[in-house]
Design a binder for these strands. Structure first.
Lengths: 187, 187, 187, 187
DNA sequence: AATGAATGAGTCTTCATTCAT
DNA sequence: GATGAATGAAGACTCATTCAT
């Protein structure tokens, strides 16, 4: 039941936004009562926290798998990280969108842990770019921190406009963005 | 008074979010009463509509000035458009952030006009890139629609993380992003 | 309206207790809506605070009138204070009972001011007894602080059992208690 | 387990009040579940009833022991009854406080039996005073019913203010009150 | 003897909105 | 132009209670 609530909440939060989704909305779909919700979650915010925490934790784990692979060039690592983010639109679209949109609704105590992991993910990308620079794969003199924000901008913004049933496939999109980004920073 | 309400609302919407800001919050700061608010605006959503409308209209106008300049190459037009977007963070930060974050709260009737202008802005960029391709400034075979979303991703995402009092200036940031984007798509 | 809400609340708090009385109960009787309640009071506890504050402030004022009268002996001052408390059962029964019963529901921030006045009232009695001892009206060696608690016990407890339409009048009760107390402590 | 629940409930009821204490609060401390509670008690009110019933039954028994002692004067009987009540603050503080404060939460059906015993306790005191009057220990013409309420006021009120770790001991307090009361009513 | 899941009615509170003045 | 009073619908959350296991 806890899982059913989480799943349903993600769908509703994505569709209507966190603020616009009431507990009643959630439990109505599941045909249970509000009491049930509060049996599993201490508050609406706690639920959002769980969603965020699950998502970023999983994302970080998958990023780590890429980084741990010693055989990959930095270009390849960066490509795969971009692919990771973009393919999540199709695979975990709602979770991902909720994750990127509703941070604001996490109060200070809760947000710290999430924010730390979020920063970790970003810093991992920055490190990859840095090493790419040192190893001559990317241009010298890049502001790698700003470049990293640029990369995240491209990928994360796609959560705003990408329609899974639109005219372009995820694979094509990944290719286009990888191409644009690598050309943008390589020697 | 109408202007004071708008200005104050933008500040509060940016700080706390649209949903989390009550009419009471707004009028409290201005030391007037809720009745006053409803004298000038028919609803909370109408106010948000006005803010969005003002912002996108102004943005479009300034974009048009760039596009109308016959002496500029497409690269230059694109650079200036990027500059336009990024400098707004510093100059119109709150408005811009409200614009990019709170679209969701506009109901269908209101959103059409805004959306049309928003799309227009994007299509203007796409057209610039297209012409750049035709004139040999940018690579052949680019999916210019996706590239455009990528460019917007880079610029708009900066509204999420840029701190005006941080270690990097707007001008430096513009330079970095123009460089990254142009390198990413030029011949 | 604010006054009507206060008056009605006192009646209901006395009859059913603070916890058992809902805002709905209060506004139902007045045939207004809950919104109205919250237009005048920021919370249920705030209302209780107001009730307590009004009561103790008024009680202190009337006590002060007695103490300021230079012509009275300490015995007389004490008699009049006892009369003050006991007659309030008839005159302000509900307020008084709410005051003596529902202190517990005031959270820490609110209670301080009330508590201070409450203590002031008690200390005023203690001072009267003390002076009575010094002037030879009351016995030497009395623990005047404990005696004061005893006096308050007698009077305040009457709020628990006294029935205005019972077989004994307030005036008779005052006489009995004044007699008992004075005999208990005089030379 | 039943006893553990009762003991723990008394502590919590005293600290937070009956209404403010949830079944969850009680079972949390005992590290059992709500089901367990309802295995032993049919309702929250039933539990409160049990607590009241236990307390007053025990109090009555101990009072009876005093009254049955043929060798005691009425003064002595009264003294011992006062001592009985006041020492309970130290010995059974929480139970006693719950008993004196939370009567209100007993609904009509339950309260009858308790009330009868409560009245019995009071009437036993009244009878002692009456006999004291007849035997010339106390003054003629006393309204013994009101005097009894006065005595109970003094003792019961001490449950409101007495701090076990304060500057006065129970024994001293008993002495002071016995003195005050006896002087107040004796020949 | 005890649990864990679920209920449902109720609680306080918020807030956009209306309207007579 | 602006106010102050009032509304009413909705929101998050609590909690005593039930019951199959």
């Amino acid at each position: 039941m806890k899982e059913k609530i989480t799943t349903q909440s993600i769908i509703l939060f994505e569709k209507k936004g966190f603020s616009q989704t009431s507990i009643q909305d959630i439990v109505d779909v599941l045909e249970v009562t509000k009491g049930t919700f509060y049996y599993y979650f201490s508050s609406k915010e706690q639920l959002l926290m769980d969603i965020h925490s699950d998502y970023i934790t999983n994302l970080l784990e998958r990023q780590q798998l890429i980084l741990d692979n010693q055989n990959l060039s930095q270009k390849e690592k960066l490509s795969r990280t971009i692919r990771l983010l973009v393919t999540d639109i199709a695979d975990k679209g709602p979770s991902a969108r909720v994750f990127f949109r509703e941070v604001r609704h996490l109060a200070n105590e809760n947000i710290e842990n999430i924010k730390k992991k979020r920063d970790q993910f970003r810093l991992n990308i920055e490190k990859t770019v840095n090493e790419g620079v040192q190893q001559g794969e990317f241009r010298k003199g890049l502001r790698t921190d700003m470049i990293t924000f640029g990369i995240l901008g491209i990928t994360n913004w796609s959560y705003q406009w990408y329609k899974p049933d639109g005219e372009i496939s995820i694979d094509e999109l990944v290719e286009i963005y990888v191409d644009m980004i690598l050309k943008g920073i390589e020697q």
